[in-house]
Nucleic acid binder design. Structure first.
Length: 729
DNA sequence: AGCACGCCGACT
DNA sequence: GTCGGCGTGCTC
């Protein structure tokens, strides 16, 4: 401008902002500001200010007039290089915008600036004038050299704050600033060392060695329910902690796993830090911050904990690695189990996948040598697996209008007589899965999706389990107007509870279902009550298969063992195998002889036969064989394409168009809708197609092309992708 | 994703 | 006359 050749080049850096843009946005760095890749910054974005992560990825060339400056660099540890790589990797693999992955890392809004020290007091000695009883109590309490908050000291001494004020006015206390307290104690690897069996020691040794190698590895810890997997992998946790590393333990349903935290505490002398969606915001920030600073050593968390900015990660454990709860099907679609493996690879540390019923792909990975296979045989101590028997419902059907077969009723009766607990398992919430009109045959169907409305008699509602639609239970048929002629078809847990109450009027019955009134807190209480023997019959959905142990149960009755085998899900068999194994494994933990009865109309179904025979090997062999023979799509060559649109008709027409658009002559094939038929989530109708191809890279490039085209397709089409893995690296 | 702007319907 | 519904478009 003024003829001088010196051009002041203002520094521009790419910043990942929490927005679905393909690339990071560019921002100016003020001259006196020190930023680098990994800095967490506050930047203007349109009309608002957001937190973003400075990265080193290329950003688009942008009109210099549009450039805005970074407002603030947070006083916070840098997001590590590894974490930046992990964000990029996850974004690419899941075909999601990198900013949306970064958004998952920054899920603790106020944690980026250090938590302020809080004002406090410390007793500096000396006697009080006019020493009253209250004043004496305060001085006694404070006489330990520690710092106290005013209210904390008053509370501990059992007096009001004004007593402390009075003493402070006499100059007996000095003002101090107290650093924020640690969220959890320091775990002690030698605190409550477990008495392990020989098998357990051998398995633990493998895992400990993996940790000591200080390199990437994946171990699949495969131990039957009750074999003490947790105690075994705790040894690996202990070793990692001893070596000064941070450990992440992923659990599928952390909100319900109070028992796990207790077990951890008795092994390590303190609880792990928790991470899940219903943490109080303040606690959430502290945990985030202390993980970033490296002071928290062990975190037990839900899948989102994978995106915490660990300062020095050294081990990730994925407990119940087969559990579908690890899949996030919202915004960024990912499977935390798979991304944990990737995180370990990037960070060069050990990953442990633990399960009694591993997913097929993990077992295949182990068979092929990509993962280390660590088997754990036999149940711990005197616990025995229950004897399983199929109940052929064609031969001994229940009384009309009932759902428990005579043999089941008898077994429950005997269990009650022995003063033991019975568990009746049915993976269906509500009273009845279908309601129809006796006069005209009208079936109540969800207006938003194609599924039947489930009657919830307790709430007096008809509900859609697919999308959450609900209406008041009607008295009259909306089609023919007939009154009091609606019939409930089939059972849900509420109906089983009704039948059990009629059959065993003196039994104390508890129903455990995710729609229980009172939410998670109430569920926890009921579970405690059951464990203490305050129920005779427990009736539950798949919730009972997760986390909590019920040591007093000696009979597990599966009401509909065929449920879940029938639908078009390529994982139907696997899911059923896993669920039924977990449910029946709930019994017999005290060493008493226990029994599992499976009501079925197809006792010869190979999956059920394998479960009944306790022959996991047969089951896995058959599943793997089916995939190899192309009966089921092979893993790594299958992706789900989730299409969402504003209306059902639009979603379906998009689905048809995409199926037509698939390159027929190429290796890509778009299969019809399966797994989930149609759901409405946050007002958008969602459709799922399966895409199959001979290489994962083919599928990914097809989907990428589709995503490129999607914005141009105008209207409301949105595509998201869920890629089924076999291996990553 | 989240926010503003803008254009049409029922209310103090 | 205004409050408020959600369609459209934009964010370095």
């Amino acid at each position: 401008m003024n003829g001088k050749t010196e051009i002041k080049t203002r520094r521009v850096v790419p910043v990942l902002v929490p927005m679905p843009a393909e690339r990071p946005y560019s921002y100016l760095v003020p001259d006196d500001m020190d930023v680098q890749a990994g800095s967490i910054v506050r930047v203007p974005l349109g009309p608002r200010e957001v937190a973003g992560i400075v990265t080193d990825d290329a950003s688009d060339q942008v009109d210099p007039k549009k450039l805005k400056s970074i407002l603030h660099v947070f006083d916070c540890p840098l997001v590590s290089r590894d974490m930046l790589r992990f964000i990029r990797w996850t974004a690419e693999y899941t075909l999601s915008p990198p900013g949306m992955v970064a958004r998952m890392v920054l899920r603790a809004p106020a944690a980026f600036d250090p938590e302020p020290f809080i004002p406090g007091l410390r007793y500096i000695g000396g006697k009080a004038e006019r020493l009253t009883a209250a004043r004496e109590k305060v001085l006694e309490t404070a006489n330990n050299g520690l710092s106290w908050t005013k209210s904390g000291l008053a509370h501990a001494a059992g007096v009001s704050g004004s007593v402390v004020e009075g003493l402070k006015a006499q100059g007996l206390f000095e003002d101090v600033m107290i650093p924020p307290p640690p969220v959890v104690g320091e775990p002690d690897p030698f605190y409550g060392q477990a008495d392990l069996s020989e098998d357990q020691q051998a398995a633990a040794q493998c895992l400990v060695e993996a940790v000591e190698e200080d390199a990437y590895s994946v171990s699949l810890l495969h131990g039957v329910t009750g074999s003490g997997k947790t105690e075994v992998y705790f040894e690996a946790v202990a070793r990692a902690v001893e070596l000064g590393k941070q450990v992440l333990i992923l659990l599928p349903e952390i909100a319900l796993t109070q028992q796990f935290l207790d077990r951890f505490e008795s092994r390590f002398g303190t609880r792990p830090a928790e991470w899940h969606s219903d943490l109080a915001p303040r606690q959430r920030e502290r945990v985030w911050r202390q993980i970033a600073e490296g002071t928290v050593k062990v975190v037990a968390g839900a899948r989102s904990a994978l995106f915490l900015p660990f300062a020095n990660p050294g081990l990730i454990i994925v407990d119940e690695e087969h559990d579908p709860a690890y899949k996030q099907e919202d915004r960024v679609f990912y499977n935390a189990r798979d991304m944990a493996v990737v995180r370990g690879s990037i960070g060069k540390f050990a990953v442990i996948l633990a399960s009694a019923t591993p997913s097929i792909e993990s077992l295949v990975n182990a068979n092929q040598g990509r993962y280390r296979y660590v088997p754990l045989q036999g149940r711990y101590a005197d616990a025995a697996l229950p004897d399983l028997k199929p109940l052929d419902m064609r031969r001994s059907p229940p009384v009309a209008g009932r759902f428990l077969s005579p043999a089941m009723v008898e077994a429950v009766g005997q269990t009650l007589q022995r003063k033991e607990q019975a568990l009746l398992f049915l993976n269906r919430r509500g009273y009845a899965p279908l309601t129809l009109c006796r006069v005209c045959g009208h079936r109540f169907q969800c207006p938003d999706c194609s599924s039947w409305l489930v009657e919830h008699r307790f709430r007096g509602q008809l509900m859609c389990h697919q999308c959450g639609y609900h209406e008041k239970s009607p008295d009259a048929c909306p089609s023919c107007g007939a009154l009091d002629n609606l019939v409930a078809c089939g059972p849900g847990v509420e109906r089983i509870a009704e039948e059990a109450a009629a059959t065993f009027p003196d039994a104390r019955i508890i129903v455990l279902s995710s729609d229980m009134a009172g939410g998670v807190t109430r569920l926890r209480m009921e579970m405690e009550a059951i464990a203490k023997g305050e129920a005779d019959i427990v009736i539950g959905t798949q919730l009972v298969a997760k986390g909590h142990n019920f040591p007093l149960i000696t009979l597990v009755g599966v009401i509909d063992a065929d449920l879940g085998l029938a639908n078009g899900d390529p994982r139907a068999a696997e899911r059923t195998f896993q669920l039924l194994n977990q449910v029946t494994g709930r019994a017999g933990r005290t060493g008493r002889k226990s029994v599992g009865l499976l009501q079925t109309y197809q006792p010869d179904h190979p999956v059920l036969k394998a479960i009944v025979a306790g022959d996991a090997h047969a089951f896995y062999e058959r599943e793997i064989d089916e995939r190899q023979r192309g009966m089921l799509p092979p893993f790594g060559r299958l992706a789900a394409l989730i299409i969402s649109a504003d209306s059902r008709a639009e979603a379906e027409s998009h689905a048809r168009a995409l199926r037509r658009a698939a390159p027929r002559d190429g290796d890509i094939e778009v299969l019809g809708p399966a797994e989930a038929p149609l759901a409405v989530i946050r007002g958008r109708h969602r459709f799922r197609l399966l895409v199959q191809g001979s290489k994962r890279s083919d599928i990914q490039s097809y989907l990428r092309a589709l995503l490129q085209a999607a914005p141009k397709a105008r209207g409301s089409l949105r595509v998201q992708v869920d890629i089924d893995p076999q291996s990553f690296l």
